[in-house]
Write a protein that binds this DNA or RNA. Structure first.
Lengths: 229, 229
DNA sequence: GCCGGCCGTGACAGAACCGTGACGATTACA
DNA sequence: TGTAATCGTCACGGTTCTGTCACGGCCGGC
């Protein structure tokens, strides 16, 4: 579950700070810019998953930046949430016409912010239609989030599920513990490499006698999922 | 999933335009009329699945048109959403009495509009289009808005009903709390994810011993409705 | 056959996750 | 206008999952 990156563009550092704290607590990566120019540059540079834009800023205004971002190919798909001071309700339509995806009126609670931000991200990321995979009667179906062995359900924990999913979509190739941590646990976590071994063990146990030969140890390297020997 | 047709009746072309864009992005077909007369004609002519009506218009007002549409056989089943300027909250009751299915205050975000429009379509689709669903003696009948277990009625709240309906029409698939909030609550609401858990609980309680195994927890992910396992 | 490194395995404590009852607020209804 | 129903949130507790460790077996090289 790789965390998303959010770019905050606001001239008041105290506001930026508040938002940043709230977002970091909700496990988002945060970038900050204090004016439209640097904001624009950072949007191009870091490709954040979402941009939080203050309406009123010295120099180029938020809405102007919003228009610019929507106009450019590289950033057009980037969801934008506009922040505005209370009592400027009329701007709402103007803001949304500029291409903003949502519009939050100050003052707002951090929780509201996070909730609306989630909603916007949810919409912006269409659920990937993942295909189910089957190998020797072992079937993993992402839609129902189920693993079956010749039709009967297997008990399997969340991490084992992800591990198996990764393996089944990347068969016949050896991965180091480090690579598996990256791919299955998600990059920026600090976890002992030996932990992989433990989950491999648990996965094998879940797979049972029938299928555990599919998860193979590559001594000195890591593990591999393969139907061949 | 053939896309639905929405008729917009508003005298301001900029508003019509904004709404049209939003709806087209959400994959609806859009018809526009700039006054009640042509709106009325188009409603009869094209039989849209829903009508968006501005309250204040020169000549015949939106609410008047709403009443007329509800009075005539051919258009009585047609869901209507009224649009009104802010600060005219009092009209709400009047509007709903006239037969409108929902009531949106300007300014509104396209997102909000689409969400509420979906909600209205979901619950107000003319009888006959929505089939009743039955699974293991548990039957949900949209026409009578009733849930029965082997013939005897079940007590079930509005939200639980919608939740169950969604589940029964989307079986064998796991949904995250976030997705359920989108689908059942409507995308623009700001509600804690754990709230889903509580309603799942209430739904299970309503279903009773007999059927609660159908609502399954997918640990680490969300919930699923399934007859298997 | 000996040895060092590598890996399987069981145990464990802390964290994460989910079910559940309760509560205040709002809404619907009589 | 009062009463009931429903909603969203919270806090508590049980259960499951996770990451780590330690022990010991296994393997390969010499």
């Amino acid at each position: 579950m790789s965390s998303k990156t959010v770019l905050i563009v606001d001239d008041e550092s105290s506001i930026r700070e508040m938002i940043a704290v709230a977002l970091e607590m909700a496990d988002y990566r945060v970038l900050e810019a204090e004016n439209a120019q640097t904001g624009h540059a950072m949007a191009l540079d870091h490709k954040p998953d979402l941009v939080l834009l203050d309406w009123m800023m010295p120099g180029t205004s938020g809405i102007e930046l919003a228009r610019r971002l929507k106009r450019e190919e590289a950033t057009a798909e980037m969801p934008i949430i506009l922040l505005t001071a209370k009592g400027e309700e009329d701007n709402k339509i103007q803001g949304l016409e500029a291409g903003a995806d949502d519009y939050i009126t100050k003052p707002f609670s951090p929780r509201e912010l996070v909730a609306r931000l989630k909603a916007v991200l949810r919409r912006a990321t269409p659920a990937g239609v993942e295909e189910s995979v089957e190998v020797e009667g072992l079937k993993l179906d992402p839609a129902s989030h189920r693993v079956t062995s010749h039709g009967s359900a297997l008990e399997i924990g969340p991490t084992e599920y992800r591990l198996l999913q990764f393996f089944m979509t990347h068969q016949e190739r050896a991965y180091t513990r480090s690579q598996l941590l990256d791919q299955v646990w998600g990059g920026n976590v600090y976890v002992e490499e030996r932990t992989v071994d433990v989950h491999i063990r648990r996965l094998r146990k879940s797979l049972g006698e029938t299928h555990q030969h599919l998860v193979q140890t590559v001594r000195g390297t890591g593990y591999r999922f393969s139907t061949r020997e």
